[in-house]
Amino acid sequence: MTQLSDFSPWESKSVSPLTLITLDLDETVWPSESVLKKAEEVQFKWLQQRAPYLTAIHDLESLRTHRRLIREQYAEIAYDLTAVRATSLRLLLEEAGDSPDLAEEAIAVFLEARNWVTPYADVPPILEKLARTYRLASLTNGNADVQCTPLKAHFHFSLTPSIAGAAKPAPDMFRQALEQAGVEPHQAVHIGDHPECDVIAAQQVGMRAVWINRQETPWPADLPPPEATIKDFYELERWLLQEIDI
């Protein structure tokens, strides 16, 4: 595993053959738990005004339970969390006696609030630097739209399950990112917090991969160790300078 050491200033390094950096979003560039909770609360308040029969029967927890059932029952959309939410809500609205057509607008309300993210403090200054040299792409299994967040200026393109037709750890999203950037796997590195969906999945398509472990959790014993582990984007910058730009 790579050990971090002292490095020369960023500006003094030569141009690297690395062209593309792909990044996970939730728990990699921003925390998501509180954002998701808030988005669901905002949507539920909206539903209380527009779908009184539904909200007389269901609370936030029962809505979550129903979404889990939909993911199990509708395998063809299980990879797309937005489609799961929309399908679940449409079915519940109709069952309760409210208009199922409200589902689309309710999902829009949720997605707007889903993008009210606050990046980790280390992320914006490093992404601003990286975007000057590399193509940056977000690869997320979630439904945040990076172009509607404070980080929009730093990303050249973004892929989600609804665009790729599959969720990580399936290779589709990684392969589409390579194709869209016009690079070979060895010219790309992926940064993410999930051992299987980010690190192992990226390595299986031939990309380099770095595990960001902000919570200092143990690496799963049954998986091969990551090439490098970092705790924040400052360490990512130093790793790039040491491992890539030499």
Rank of each mutant, 00 (worst) to 15 (best):
C197F: 09
P169T: 01
W211D: 06
A221N: 07
P195K: 04
H194Q: 15
S158C: 13
R175N: 12
D172P: 02
C148P: 09
R175W: 08
F157S: 13
W219G: 03
A167Y: 06
A137M: 06
D193W: 04
K168W: 05
L223E: 02
E196F: 00
F155V: 07
L151D: 11
P150C: 07
V210L: 11
D193V: 02
P224I: 00
F174R: 10
Q215Y: 11
H186W: 12
I191F: 08
Q204N: 14
V189I: 15
I191N: 09
P150L: 08
A201K: 01
N213W: 07
I212M: 06
H154K: 06
F174W: 10
P225R: 02
V183P: 09
P185H: 01
E184K: 13
P224V: 00
H156L: 04
A177I: 01
Q176K: 14
G182Q: 05
S162T: 13
A170L: 13
W211N: 03
P224C: 00
A164G: 08
A170E: 15
E179N: 10
L178W: 06
N141I: 04
D222G: 00
H190W: 01
D222W: 01
S162N: 10
W211C: 06
D172H: 12
H186N: 12
A170M: 10
V199G: 07
D145G: 10
N143K: 09
D193N: 13
Q215A: 13
D222I: 00
I163Q: 15
A166K: 10
R132S: 12
A202L: 03
Q215T: 12
A202F: 02
D222M: 02
P185N: 06
A153C: 12
